[in-house]
């Protein structure tokens, strides 16, 4: 279904190295290959799951896709444009097309900002000319869409539960109607019963807004449930990639197999 859809996001041979503190006085500084030669594509309407454990490089990869971090090698293209060739101003003007939801709902909203201003922030950048009234209407519309009410507008993040904050973060990411949403472990910090609410919300919004989704998680069950295609990362490298069902039912790489075997299951 998706092979013919337009290509929204493309990464080619991305690498990101971190220099570690030197061992001993004269030793060379060891280099950590956080992301090592990773390529990926994301087509319109598609959901790509990225699976990996801590230190696999999946969050570094997400930040490079979002142009929050510069790759040491390789390039990222949004809608066919190589973003490293864009001027800062041009890059800014394209950010409304690609937005992000973070793992920690307690850390991703500015504690000193009202929900109205937090949610409106991406809009303020994309449409600084908007009147206060239209801005408020836009925020209210998207808040209601994620299951919150006008009451939330004037309140601060600490007055909300983790699940509600994640709804606010999603509203904020979607207010500019992006075509791509990068979600980095968006439900890992939430209770099981709340996780399901947020996952349902994400899949509803995905359908409604025609979102292409990059869903990063360590939880294989969730990725399997949500993703069309999946990429398994280990020590900065992609060890396996393919249609979600194929990877999970017949894993080809040893590491994927080990991961699946280690995952606790309910029917053991």
């Amino acid at each position: 279904m998706t092979a013919s859809n337009p290509l929204l996001l493309e990464a080619l041979n991305l690498s990101r190295f971190y220099r570690l503190p030197r061992r001993g006085l004269f030793g060379a500084r060891p280099v950590l290959k956080a992301v090592d030669n990773v390529s990926l594509t994301l087509r319109d309407g598609e959901t790509l799951g990225i699976v990996g454990e801590s230190g696999s490089g999946k969050s570094t990869l997400a930040r490079m896709l979002m142009a929050l971090e510069q790759p040491d090698r390789g390039e990222v293209s949004w809608m066919g444009e190589n973003i490293s060739r864009l001027s800062p101003l041009a890059l800014r003007s394209r950010r409304h097309e690609i937005q992000m939801v973070f793992q920690d709902p307690y850390g991703s909203l500015d504690p000193r900002m009202r929900v109205l201003d937090s949610v409106a922030e991406p809009l303020d950048v994309a449409r600084p000319d908007l009147s206060a009234e239209l801005r408020r209407d836009a925020v209210l519309e998207i808040l209601e869409r994620v299951g919150l009410t006008a009451e939330a507008l004037r309140r601060y993040p600490h007055q909300f539960s983790g699940g509600q904050r994640q709804r606010i973060a999603i509203a904020r990411a979607l207010i500019t109607r992006p075509r791509i949403l990068v979600a980095d472990e968006p439900v890992s910090a939430l209770d099981v019963s709340i996780q399901a609410q947020i996952l349902n919300l994400l899949s509803d919004l995905r359908a409604e807004f025609g979102l292409a989704l990059i869903f990063i998680s360590h939880d294989l069950g969730i990725v399997r449930y949500l993703a069309d295609r999946v990429m398994v990362m280990h020590h900065g490298k992609v060890v396996e990639e393919g249609e979600s069902e194929a990877v999970f039912s017949a894993p080809a790489h040893d590491y994927t197999r080990a991961l699946l075997a280690a995952m606790p299951k309910l029917d053991e």
């Binding site: 929050l68 950010r95 937005q99 992000m100 973070f102 920690d104 991703s108 909203l109 991406p122 950048v125």
Partner: peptide, 10 residues
Amino acid sequence: DFIRAARAAG
């Protein structure tokens, strides 16, 4: 994260 989020917002 909210600083990263602000940068992602442009």
